[in-house]
Design a protein around this nucleic acid. Structure first.
Length: 267
DNA sequence: TGGAATGTTGGAAC
DNA sequence: CGTTCCAACATTCC
């Protein structure tokens, strides 16, 4: 369920509830005052990255499906819902095994929509600035950063790094500017490929790297390892994906600053 | 069939 | 005090 495009699909599937009034709500979430939801109209349904947002007049609900979360519209699963929102005529929106939080109602004050890969307001230049500002960060961590690429997940990481032929342990500061731009561009392209393929139930068959054994380009086996700050699964081809490393430190004795940064000799 | 996984949080440990 | 590590959450798939 969880990556950003899947949340866009949820938002689209639930769009019919916008403008309708909640009749009753229940569930095993400890973060929701269910009684307070009754009688409130759904002002809007929005998404930011992997967050699904239900805008009500007095508050907003933030649903995060995490790894295992799921939802049903006008259906129920066997297990108890974390949050069930009932409307007239028995229609309902049910969420399972997810994180639910209550937020203040002004979502624009709490979210920067420019960071959301799926948003009309997505701002590639802002992402580029943030990448440039973190030269020591590994690229495999950068593509998972929700502060830079909200909505990207581990599938994005493996697919996009394979597409742009960059080794996951590359350091941002060692990537040439045009590679950084290509990374930002391809994240957005893949986001909409993901959305289209997921809707057509063909997402998995388009994976070129994620969970794959053999590099489809050069036919040697993929490397697999748990890399980066969060030790997430990485699938990568050491022949096709270049490792960009920081320049090694030169010994102090011979280190000199670039000519442009030297203090001009006093005359 | 057990283990791993499309993810995040919060708290312990250092 | 900042950084890092890890458990917890709970479901599905191979």
């Amino acid at each position: 369920m969880p990556e950003g495009p899947s949340i866009v699909i949820l938002r689209e599937e639930a769009a019919g509830f916008v403008g309708r009034t909640i009749e009753h709500a229940s569930g095993n979430s400890k973060a929701v005052d269910f009684a307070a939801l009754a009688g409130q109209p759904v002002v809007a349904l929005r998404s930011w990255g992997k967050h699904f947002l239900i805008q009500l007049p007095d508050l907003a609900l933030r649903i995060h499906l995490m790894m295992f979360g799921s939802y049903r519209i006008n259906e129920r699963k066997e297990t108890a819902p974390r949050l069930s929102i009932g409307f007239t005529d028995g229609e309902e929106l049910n969420f399972y095994a997810c994180s639910v939080k209550t937020l203040p109602p002004d979502l624009d004050a709490q979210y920067d929509w420019r960071v959301d890969l799926m948003s009309d307001q997505w701002d590639p230049e802002l992402a580029l600035q943030k990448l440039r500002a973190a030269p020591d960060m590994l690229v495999c961590d950068a593509v998972l950063s929700q502060d830079i690429f909200a909505g990207a997940g581990n599938i994005f990481k493996n697919e996009v790094l394979f597409r742009i032929r960059v080794h996951p342990l590359s350091t941002l500061g060692a990537l040439p500017e045009d590679k950084l731009r290509e990374l930002v561009h391809e994240m957005r392209v893949y986001a909409f490929d993901f959305l289209r393929w997921k809707k057509a139930y063909v997402l998995r068959q388009h994976w070129e790297a994620h969970t794959r054994q053999i590099c489809p380009r050069c036919l040697i086996p993929f490397h697999r390892a748990h890399l980066g700050r969060t030790h997430r699964r990485s699938f990568y081809c050491i022949q096709c994906q270049r490792l960009y490393e920081p320049a090694p430190l030169t010994p102090t004795r011979s280190r000199s600053r670039p000519r442009s940064q030297r203090t001009p000799p006093a005359s």
